[in-house]
Amino acid sequence: MSGGPLEIAGLDEVTERFDAFLIDQFGVLRDGKGPYPGAVDTLMRLKQAGKTIIILSNSGKRSAENDRRLAALGFDRTSWDWFLTSGEVAWRILQKESGQGAGGVSRKCLLVSRDGDTSPLDGLGLERTESGEDADFIMLAASEGDLHPLSFYETLLAPAARRGVPCLCTNPDKIMLTKEGTAFGAGRIAELYEELGGQVRWIGKPFADIYATAREFLGDLPPEKICCIGDSIEHDIAGAAGAGLKSILVTTGILETASDAQRQALFAEHGAMPDFILPAFTWSGR
């Protein structure tokens, strides 16, 4: 977009340009404590405007788990059409590969998740292990970086990396929002695994699989009629650009304290610039 992003005060300024919105969860609709002011109403107004809405999240949990969680926070379940997570995309990929027999998924899986969540593996017929010593496959679905230092994960994963065990990261976010602030996300643990010599397959924003799944749901809708809304230049804005879609950067979430110069540096670093910049996920700035 020549001349840089257009600054807008509310979503009502651009709603008529698009037929569908792919909206990030953390950093746009909510933080680690709950919904942002006005986010519940804004999402409903966008839906009432006749738009197709997919919540597009780098969550290692499957879609149904996130549906329930967002509704429990006070969002109206009718205000989105699908909650698509990287965990859901990965589960579907693994389900397909599991059915292929030879060359499919390894038997013992070391699952790195949060709050004891096993949904990324439920129904896949994999045996769980708690050790990198005997794992055939690693799934990085979430981080407990607010509870454990990075060295905890290094100790857990180093034996698997030495053995060349493949790893699937279903939550590429390097930073996560918690009730206490920010902490390193599952994406940082995946980077650590690569630093230890392991190989990682990445699922979620900004990678292609999650956008292909969303586009399949939207049918033959032209890409110029689809807009992505997110707070991460590395994941949301770069992902939208890679998929040929328009984008809005909200300056809440992980970039809340970033200066304009810092944002510009990130645009250059990731080779992606949003079409619009919005201070927060609000309907109108008037």
Rank of each mutant, 00 (worst) to 15 (best):
S2E: 15
S2C: 08
G4W: 04
G4V: 01
L6Y: 06
I8P: 06
I8S: 01
D12C: 01
F18Y: 13
A20I: 08
F21A: 11
F21W: 13
D24V: 04
Q25H: 01
G27H: 12
V28G: 06
T42S: 12
L46K: 08
K47T: 08
K47S: 08
K47Q: 10
A49S: 14
I53D: 05
I53G: 01
I54V: 07
S57D: 08
S57M: 02
N58T: 11
N58W: 15
S59K: 03
S59C: 03
G60A: 01
K61T: 05
S63Y: 00
A64E: 14
N66L: 07
R68M: 02
R68P: 01
R69L: 04
L70H: 00
L73N: 04
G74S: 07
R77A: 14
T78R: 11
D81T: 01
D81K: 02
W82V: 07
W82H: 03
W82M: 05
L84C: 04
L84G: 02
S86D: 10
S86Q: 14
W91V: 01
I93Y: 04
L94N: 04
E97Q: 08
Q100N: 13
G103M: 07
G104F: 04
G104Y: 09
R107Y: 09
C109V: 11
C109S: 02
D115Q: 07
P120D: 03
P120T: 03
G123F: 12
R128F: 08
E130D: 12
S131E: 03
S131F: 01
S131A: 04
G132K: 05
D134Q: 02
D134A: 02
A135K: 02
A135R: 02
D136Y: 03
F137T: 01
I138R: 00
G145F: 12
L150D: 06
Y153P: 03
E154F: 02
E154L: 07
L157T: 02
L157M: 00
A160H: 00
A161M: 00
R163M: 00
R163S: 00
C167D: 00
C169L: 08
T170P: 04
T170W: 04
P172K: 13
D173P: 11
I175F: 06
T178V: 12
K179C: 05
K179W: 03
G181M: 10
T182A: 13
T182M: 15
A183W: 10
G185Y: 13
R188S: 15
I189N: 14
A190P: 05
L192W: 14
Y193P: 07
E195A: 12
E195I: 09
L196R: 09
Q199A: 03
V200P: 01
W202I: 05
G204W: 10
K205H: 15
A208L: 15
A208Q: 13
I210D: 14
A212G: 05
T213S: 11
A214M: 08
R215Y: 01
E216C: 06
G219T: 12
G219I: 08
G219P: 03
P223Y: 06
K225H: 12
K225E: 11
S232K: 10
I233S: 10
H235T: 15
A240E: 14
S247H: 12
S247G: 08
V250E: 11
I254N: 14
T257E: 12
Q262W: 11
Q262R: 13
A265D: 12
L266Y: 12
H270G: 13
H270Q: 11
A272Q: 15
M273C: 09
D275V: 13
D275E: 15
F276A: 14
I277L: 14
F281H: 09
F281W: 10
G285N: 03
G285D: 02
R286G: 09
